[in-house]
Design a protein around this nucleic acid. Structure first.
Lengths: 209, 209
DNA sequence: AGTGTTATTAATAGACTTATTAAACAACTC
DNA sequence: GAGTTGTTTAATAAGTCTATTAATAACACT
């Protein structure tokens, strides 16, 4: 509905299709969406989807690449040298969390499509490009802090996994929580905001020497 | 292959089908598996799947219920009154983690099928039966510890979420890690074992007052 | 206005899926 | 050994999905 008016008019049929596909794939995954459904959402003929993207897999790949890029870009955070390690860490955690808030379906989407081992190559490449850089940087920072006995001994890998685990979960489990806890939209975002702070507390506390 | 010989012979066609379905659904989800594929795995005619379970959805439901039961049963742990809170907590964390190790595909499976909002009723019921009981018990224990200033102030809900988040992630992200880090089977289980200890450390540390 | 190019649609082929049905088969009872 | 019951199979209806094709509409340019 919204996507339609946004881009249909002039330039945009190709993009409209991409955006509609994006939304649907995020919600239901590759197998859960048909090109017919995408066309219906855009309000165009189903053949048009194939006209622009040839195959469904092709279209999906485009969506997936975009999302994956966003997912890893989350971690590229501006480092402010004036701040302490702890202050920088808090910023990292919170901005990671906030980025997920903006795309709450992203974690499930990526994890699930990885399970379906579609497009493993893109994933491998994307992560291999980003992960080592990220970990090495963090490792250096940690070394200093650990040696100064300001935090306990922990590897960058473990710290990163801890942060990601804690940050991601609430978005993965959102549907469960909604009905198990019976939360409405508002209570839900309150809870999410609360979790953000709790993750920060947990991580910081867990790092004390 | 293994399932076939296990149960095909006498009593077992009905169960063979269930087990084959279980394995396939866990691996690929509802949409990713056809009754034809299930039959092929069992080595029987496709109509037989429907003979015993009428519909694919029906069969899936049976599998899902079983898995969901297992998932929540993980938390029903024998409480040893002689142990300290910390000791009991460590046991809980570790046995939760170990249970997941035995069914590493379970978290992804459950989370994903919840997203596809198939069978939301079963989920709601199952969790509503178990969750409050679990949380209340933990809440009581926590109260004592917090009042005695042995741990920081934290809600049972948050602690539970923290534990589950940290424990689950490594199984969700296993496929990613496998190729990103290039780990073989052995290195992988080493890493998993390492993570188990790291989760314990993180949780315990994070609870200190 | 006419011609060539691009965008869009309707129609449909071909592959697969679920589910049903009727018939073949096996096992067991009397 | 004929009949009854329950199990298994082959065949197939009905539907959906992807992808292609041929025909039409829209547009751009001279």
């Amino acid at each position: 509905m919204k996507e339609q008016e946004k881009n249909n008019q002039k330039d945009g049929m190709e993009l409209s299709i991409l955006y509609a596909a994006e939304e649907l794939f995020l919600e239901k995954g590759f197998n859960g969406v048909s090109t017919t459904e995408i066309a219906a959402k855009v309000g165009c003929n189903q053949a048009l989807v194939h006209y622009y993207y040839r195959t469904k897999a092709n279209l999906f790949q485009k969506v997936f690449e975009n999302k994956l890029k966003y997912m890893v870009s989350i971690f590229e955070i501006i480092e402010d040298e004036n701040l302490s390690f702890e202050e920088r860490l808090v910023i990292k955690i919170k901005s990671h969390f906030d980025a997920l808030s903006k795309e709450p379906l992203l974690p499930m989407f990526v994890l699930n499509e990885i399970r379906n081992n579609s497009s493993t190559d893109i994933i491998r490449e994307t992560f291999r490009q980003q992960a080592p850089n990220l970990i090495n940087k963090l490792e250096e920072e940690l070394k200093i802090e650990i040696e100064a006995k300001r935090i306990r001994n922990i590897s960058a890998f473990d710290l990163l996994i801890n942060i990601i685990s804690l940050n991601i979960f609430v978005f993965l489990a959102r549907p469960i929580m909604e009905y198990v806890l019976g939360l409405d939209e508002e209570k839900m975002s309150e809870m999410i905001e609360h979790r953000k702070q709790e993750v920060v507390n947990t991580i910081l506390n867990s790092l004390r020497p």
